[in-house]
C-alpha cells in the first residue's frame, strides 16, 4: 500500500533520531527563551486560564492572536506547529460534521467554536512558553515553585541521556534487522511487514532493559558518592542551585508589555463585543 511505503521512507529510525535531537537540542536563544523561566511560567498560567473566565468572542480572538504572535516571535519548531494545526483542523472538521449531522443551529456551532478557541489558546500558550525554553531552565522554575527535586533531576538526566539511549536502541534494532529477514511479500495491507517491525520494536526492549538497568546502577552509585539524596532535601543546596534565577530589565519590560496587551484586549472586548 502506498501509505506504508511513504511511512517507511519518512519514518526511518535515522530520521526520527535526527528530528528528535534537533527539537531537543536546537538553539534555544529565542524571545521567550531569554526570559526568566518563573516569569514565563506565570505568564503561561495567566494566559491559559484567562479564556475560561469569559464568553466574549472578541476577547478570545484577541487572546488567540496574541498567543499566536508570541509563539511566532519565539520561533517554535515547524514540527510542533504542524502537529497542532492538524489537531485544530481535525477538531473543527469534527465539530462541523457533528453539527451538520444532528442538524444543529448556529448557536450550537458558535458555542462549540468558542470552546475550541479556548482549548486552542491554552495549547498555543503552552507552546509559546515552553517550546523554546531550555528544559533545564524550565525544571529550575518548577523547582522554585516547589515541585520535588527528583523531577528537576530527571529533566537534567533525560536531557543528557537522550542521545545515548536513542543510539543504543537504534543499535539493537539494527542488529535485530541484520540477523532477521524482512518478509518479501507483505501480505494484505502489508500486515506481515508491520508485524515484523512491531515484533522487533518490542523485542529490542529486552536487551535495552538489561543494559539500562546496568547503566542506571552506575549512575546512581556515582550520584550517591557525591551525596545526591542528601542534597535533594537540603534547603541550602536548593538555594544555591536556584541562585542564577534573577529578574532583569528585559523581564520587567515583558511584564509591563504583557499586562498592557491583556488590558487592551479586555477593553477592546468590552466596547466592541461580537
Amino acid at each position: 500500500m502506498e501509505l506504508v511505503n511513504r511511512f517507511k521512507k519518512t519514518y526511518n529510525l535515522e530520521w526520527v533520531k535526527l528530528e528528535l535531537l534537533k527539537t531537543a537540542f536546537g538553539k534555544k536563544d529565542s524571545y521567550m527563551g531569554r526570559k526568566d523561566p518563573r516569569l514565563v511560567m506565570v505568564w503561561y498560567f495567566i494566559v491559559s486560564l484567562l479564556p475560561w473566565f469569559t464568553f466574549n468572542q472578541t476577547i478570545l480572538i484577541g487572546l488567540l492572536v496574541y498567543t499566536i504572535v508570541t509563539s511566532l516571535v519565539s520561533r517554535v519548531s515547524p514540527l510542533i506547529i504542524g502537529l497542532l494545526t492538524i489537531g485544530v483542523i481535525s477538531e473543527i472538521i469534527y465539530i462541523v460534521a457533528l453539527v451538520y449531522l444532528f442538524g444543529g443551529e448556529w448557536a450550537a456551532f458558535s458555542s462549540l467554536i468558542t470552546f475550541t478557541m479556548k482549548i486552542t489558546i491554552m495549547s498555543i500558550a503552552s507552546i509559546a512558553a515552553f517550546a523554546s525554553m531550555d528544559p533545564e531552565k524550565l525544571s529550575d522554575a518548577l523547582l522554585s515553585f516547589g515541585v520535588p527535586a527528583q523531577f528537576s533531576f530527571a529533566v537534567s538526566y533525560g536531557y543528557r541521556m537522550l542521545p545515548i539511549l536513542l543510539d543504543e536502541y537504534q543499535q539493537i534494532i539494527l542488529s535485530f534487522r541484520l540477523r532477521g529477514k524482512a518478509p518479501t511479500n507483505g501480505g494484505v495491507l502489508k500486515w506481515r511487514t508491520i508485524y515484523y517491525y512491531s515484533k522487533i520494536v518490542v523485542k529490542a526492549f529486552y536487551p535495552m532493559m538489561l543494559n539500562t538497568a546496568k547503566k542506571t546502577r552506575t549512575t546512581v552509585e556515582a550520584l550517591e558518592v557525591k551525596g545526591f539524596s542528601y542534597s535533594l532535601h537540603d534547603k541550602e543546596a536548593k538555594k544555591q542551585k536556584l541562585s542564577h534565577l534573577k529578574l532583569s530589565n528585559q523581564d520587567y519590560t515583558f511584564l509591563v508589555m504583557s499586562i498592557g496587551i491583556l488590558l487592551a484586549i479586555y477593553f477592546l472586548g468590552k466596547y466592541y463585543p461580537i
Partner: peptide, 27 residues
C-alpha cells in the same frame, strides 16, 4: 534502600521515556 528506589525510578523513567519518544512519532 533510598538509592535502590532512585534506581527503579530512573530505570522506569528512561525506558518508558524512550518508548514514548518512539510512539509520539508513529502515525
Amino acid at each position: 534502600s533510598q538509592s535502590q528506589k532512585m534506581m527503579i525510578f530512573i530505570l522506569a523513567m528512561s525506558l518508558f521515556g524512550l518508548a514514548n519518544l518512539f510512539t509520539e512519532l508513529l502515525p
